[in-house]
Design a protein around this nucleic acid. Structure first.
Lengths: 132, 132
DNA sequence: GAAAGCGTTTACAGGACGTTCACACGAATT
DNA sequence: AATTCGTGTGAACGTCCTGTAAACGCTTTC
């Protein structure tokens, strides 16, 4: 059977971004990029939920463990570090998207080329308007 | 014959680096390198996993056998020794890459060294110079 | 028996990492 | 427009990890 979520050689993909949770490797456009342990854990957590918004609380629980304390900016810092490295490797693609008040979402989207951004409605309040 | 990991005339390659586990030979850019037994074992272990990150624990188990004790720096020392010899043989290539917190990865990559030298290297690097 | 090579261990230096601050920017609200 | 909350971003700082040279004992060779 194909058990991939937790055992043999899981391989996560999103556009030209590839992550191998087992090997600790991140490959962007064929080139291996070096990321720290925290960066890697965060990236894996997001990659396992591609296209979906992950709350800070969830991310913290997954990567750091425990509960996110008020005022803790670790997630923001590491999201930023990841963005820098990903943009350096794949300049025309944007992977980690911010959903203010909701969390982060990982998905490969073109950066600056053209604004198809008529999507003014980023997320309807029907989704989960009560975030703590 | 599909078995190559331990039988007849295995021949490992990575760029201009060639290793023959059976003969105990290391050839870099056509020149034979002399390496010690430990250095050789470590190199073979890494070459058999080209492109992948190998943890210190795994390396130790493969080359030294047993479990890596806390504070044991043998691997670091031998990685360094290998790096010195490989760089001496192939100055513009970097083979053993460190992934902090993960392990080591062997892969031929150009050394992006932006030297400010306008005099020295211009064409043929004279690799058979005066080495030992 | 002395010299040399090798593998291991030790010591110190340098760099990377993770966390926390501080401030700037932007979005949402009033 | 002004305020408030949330996020972006660069930097400071202590800690841990890795790089590197050298000391040490062991084995081999002459």
């Amino acid at each position: 059977m194909a058990m991939e979520a937790a055992s043999a050689h899981e391989e996560l993909r999103a556009g030209d971004l590839e992550v191998r949770p087992d090997d600790g490797m991140v490959i962007a456009a064929g080139r291996t990029l070096s990321v720290s342990v925290r960066e890697f854990q965060l990236l894996v957590a997001l990659m396992r939920r591609v296209g979906r918004i992950v709350t800070r609380e969830d991310l913290y629980g997954i990567v750091w463990g425990g509960t996110l304390r008020a005022g803790d900016r670790s997630i923001d810092v590491y999201v930023h570090k990841l963005r820098v490295k990903l943009e350096e490797a794949l300049p025309d693609w944007q992977f980690i998207h911010t959903h203010v008040g909701f969390g982060y979402r990982l998905a490969p989207e073109r950066s600056h080329s053209f604004h198809t951004d008529a999507t003014a409605v980023s997320h309807t309040p029907a989704q989960g308007g009560s975030a703590s």
